[in-house]
Design a protein around this nucleic acid. Sequence first.
RNA 1: GUGAUUGUAGCUCAGCUGGUUAGAGCGCCUGACUGUGACUCAGGAGGUCGCCGGUUCGAACCCGGUCAGUCACCCCA
Length: 424
Amino acid sequence: MSSHITAPRGTQDILPPISARWLALERRIHDLARRFGYGEIRTPIFESTELFVRGVGETTDIVEKEMYTFLDKGERSITLRPEFTAPVMRAALEHKLFAQGPQRWYYVGPIFRYERPQKGRYRQAHQFGVECTGFVGPEADFEVISLAWELVRSHGIDDAVLNINTIGDDECRPRYRESLLAHFRPHLDALSPDSQRRLERNPLRILDSKDDRDRPFVETAPTFESILCDGCRAHFGALRAYLDAANIPYVVNPKIVRGLDYYTRTVFEIISGALGAQSTVCGGGRYDGLVSSLGGPATPAVGFALGIERFLMMLDALHGDAVAPRAGVQAIALGAQARGVLVPLATELRRILAQPVFMDYEDRKLLAHLKAADRNNARYALILGSDELAAGEVVLRDLEARTDRRIPLGRAGDLAAALGEEQG
RNA sequence: GUGAUUGUAGCUCAGCUGGUUAGAGCGCCUGACUGUGACUCAGGAGGUCGCCGGUUCGAACCCGGUCAGUCACCCCA
């Protein structure tokens, strides 16, 4: 078994029938994005390592320890993309798209992070996300959040909660950071080892600590609310007003921080209890400083990324036991002569019918063919044996109603019509 | 990277304090029924017990290592 080659750790093969659920979700994603006026962007799966170091932030965990980085044969440092936002902005800069005003893109595809796999966490994961650039106002934040929420809402997922927060901008975030440092530093020795490490790196993250040792100091820590600058305060207030007006439920959660360096002002997550410890299915926010830090024009932007695997886990938890309705036709030929007639007929039916047409080609008993029809979850069996051949007919069996009818073995169109009638 | 836990048939799992030929259910194949499917019944195929090494007369079982799955920490989608 393990002497055979297996899929690399943290990756998975997506096989039928599960792959059909991926396809269904992807279709809804494409449709949703189109309705919001977003165009699909596809970027390379690998990029220059430098892009992520500058874009994501060199002290982030993603860049420090989670990237798939290697030298190619030309000695270039290459990295499998660990996220989409930096590549999308790189592409936009490369093609001078910001010169054309506000832009809206979405993407669907794999990302790669070298992590220990666990529930909802893989080394190759898939994300759907959007980026909206060129708008400084809260309307863009609202648009992006409502797009994400619409995907959740339209699937009837009821245990998902939208969490929003603001983490300030260049003006007030440094002030808040300083006040947190001033608050925690005197208690450094009493903090958990994790939080001691977080203090200089990203003190905001201490607020989200699960360690009891940190709790008393977290509770007395200054709130961002008290330090927020007027601009950020107004932006956040306006966003909340839009969400209220749209009846999108949310909670303000000061612990939502986000681990990537590029976020400013609005951050949000959609969280579900169906996901175990990796409870975030969708995370995003505003990143007004990223484009200029990549050497482009000062360009405000908002976006999010949504984990496809995690989203499908939520759908599983919601209605994992749903049975698919029977659909399609199992074409059954008994004997070589019947097969010679039925094979071309099946091909014609495939041209005409929207339903799938299944067919096995072995010389097997009728019983075995009908079992195959059950496995394929077919609604009908189209049976052609020597009797039917002699009579110039086929038997159309409704596998659900368990009824037979004989239909003249003529044009495929007549058959399709018969099937169409039966399908209502 | 840290910790816990689990690897036996396609799937879900038994397998006693080590004992020689490793089992069950489901699924699959064949037949009872030249040709009528979720039901019966009878046969059959399918396993280097994750892998490597050690201990032992003897290892699925004990020990070490390794790989992988699962879960949590960290972090994130």
